[in-house]
Simulated assay, not measured.
Amino acid sequence: MMEQLNRSKQFYLFIVFTCVSIFAMAQNEALFKKGNDFYNEGKYQKAIDAYLEVSENNEHSAALYYNLGNSYYKLNQIAPSIYYYEKALLLDPNDQDIQNNLQFAKNMTIDAIDVMPQTGIDKIFENFVGKLSYQTWAVLAIVAMVAFVVLFLLYYFSAYSSKKRIFFGLSILFVIISLASLGFAYQQQGLELNKQPAIIFAKETSVMSEPNMGSSEVFKLHEGTKVNVLEVLGEWKKIKLADGKIGWLPNNDLKEIKDF
């Protein structure tokens, strides 16, 4: 009897959860369409309000952030436009429209940051290992390990010495591929975790040598510039530019992109 009651309760909770989820999805779709209508009518601030309401409902998509970026760009608000284009690019790195519009927005920024050139091992790593995400390398490691097991079994049960040599050689090759892919996945995951990109939102801000206003100014940054957050200390964040410059900024002067 008690078991039947528990099952009935679980079924009831499942139905309620499903209904709530469907209602939330329908509401988000309606808000998204409303935002699109406002955008097409040239009412960009109203479009932003509708899109932000969708975002506040824990809806995250490249299309949503792309539309937010477009809306802010139309209002000449450079920092938020770049911020949302960057968020969209995180979710869809290969979208050409996002890449193009992001570049248009970046062309309106003041700071010209030269990217530090890569040399030697770093360049080789980026050109080869960096082409795939750590998830892809992990999947490749698993596939290669499965291939190794199959080939090793074929080697073990094969009756012909010529085939045994082939299967043995291929099994060794795949176990090497699996271990290498696992190592690349680990390296890529470490790099991803160390990447905490952020966008400067202050019109102009002074980057300090230490996390306090009494320290010396290292350089200035302006809205829309992309930085990488290295460390957080109280109300300050240590940032690094693409050209290698490092300094401290107040929390309120920038917004981190990976906040979902």
Rank of each mutant, 00 (worst) to 15 (best):
L68D: 06
I78S: 03
D97N: 14
A62G: 11
Y85K: 06
D95I: 06
Y65W: 08
L64N: 01
I82Q: 07
S61W: 01
N67R: 03
L89Y: 02
Y84L: 02
S81L: 06
S81W: 02
E86W: 02
D97V: 12
Y85D: 00
N67Y: 05
S71E: 04
A63P: 05
L75C: 12
L90S: 11
A79L: 08
Y84P: 01
A62L: 04
D95A: 08
A79K: 01
Y65H: 11
Q77I: 08
N94D: 15
E86M: 09
L90T: 11
A62I: 03
Q96R: 11
K87H: 06
L75P: 13
S71V: 12
L90A: 10
A88D: 08
Q99S: 15
L75K: 15
S81Y: 07
S81A: 15
S71R: 06
D97G: 02
A79G: 11
L68Y: 07
A63F: 00
N67E: 08
A79Y: 01
Y65T: 01
G69Q: 03
Y65L: 04
A62V: 10
N67Q: 12
N100V: 14
L68N: 09
D97A: 13
Y72S: 06
A63K: 13
E86D: 10
Y72A: 03
L68C: 12
Y66I: 04
I98Q: 01
D92M: 08
S61E: 02
N70Y: 05
P93E: 10
P80S: 08
Q96W: 01
E86I: 00
Q96Y: 07
Y73F: 15
S71H: 10
Q96V: 13
N76Q: 15
L64V: 12
G69D: 04
Y83V: 04
Y65E: 01
A63Q: 13
